[in-house]
Amino acid sequence: MTGTGAALVVEDIWKSFGQLDVLCGIDLEVAEHEVIALIGASGSGKSTLLRCINLIEPVDAGRILIKGEEITAKGVNVDRIRRRIGIVFQSFNLFPHMRVMDNVTLGPRKVLGRSAADAETAAMVLLERFGLAEKARDYPDRLSGGQQQRVAIVRALAMQPDLLLLDEVTSALDPELVAEVLNVIRELAAGGMTMLIATHEMGFARDIASRVCFLDGGRILEQGSPRQMFGEPHEARTRQFLNRIIEAGRL
């Protein structure tokens, strides 16, 4: 099962918060350049899975491997692992006391040891690519939600991660600002970035995911191509979930 070439292998991950079992034996293998969409109701474990992969939450049992290296092993330097995995949060979490440029270059300067000049040159290339060049000297609170979230994505990309985790990155945005963020993710997918995307945007998941995983009660109940998952899901629970989405007019 465990291909050493896989970008990410998740083996039988368990996680509970007190009495609440959030992840109940998740298995997932992600090849390089794959874009995985995690769908499922709130509380199904999508966010917790991403937070476990980023080692923000320690797992109770199971293993996680990045390019064959076990990151859940004892004694692993978590800071070294985290710099290889980018994560973007629902609520942006930009540093409000720093200008956009400093938000983006903090990691490269302090973690990767780049010089300020190198880090800023590289950051400017990324900011320009995502239409944020003229915002480089602004503080985050001068930006719209969509701009802030794009800066958060750029901040994660500036670390040149092997893997990017996106945790419902459009859920906190006004509807009219969702498209600009989705377009950025689309471009990253086209560029071959390996991504795990927890999302409620089903149309988006159908368009860009190479594989869709439906989480239910802390397990991956079903996974498959977008065509299969949204066209003819095997599981009754998956059909039920998608029907509710369609009724809500979200697909």
């Binding site: 980023n54 800071d79 985290r82 980018g86 609520s91 979490n93 990691g107 994660a156």
Partner: peptide, 13 residues
């Protein structure tokens, strides 16, 4: 805590 999470996720100690 989300500020700490964001900083740590970049690999900051």
């Amino acid at each position: 805590p989300s500020q700490t999470a964001a900083a740590r996720s970049l690999g900051l100690s």
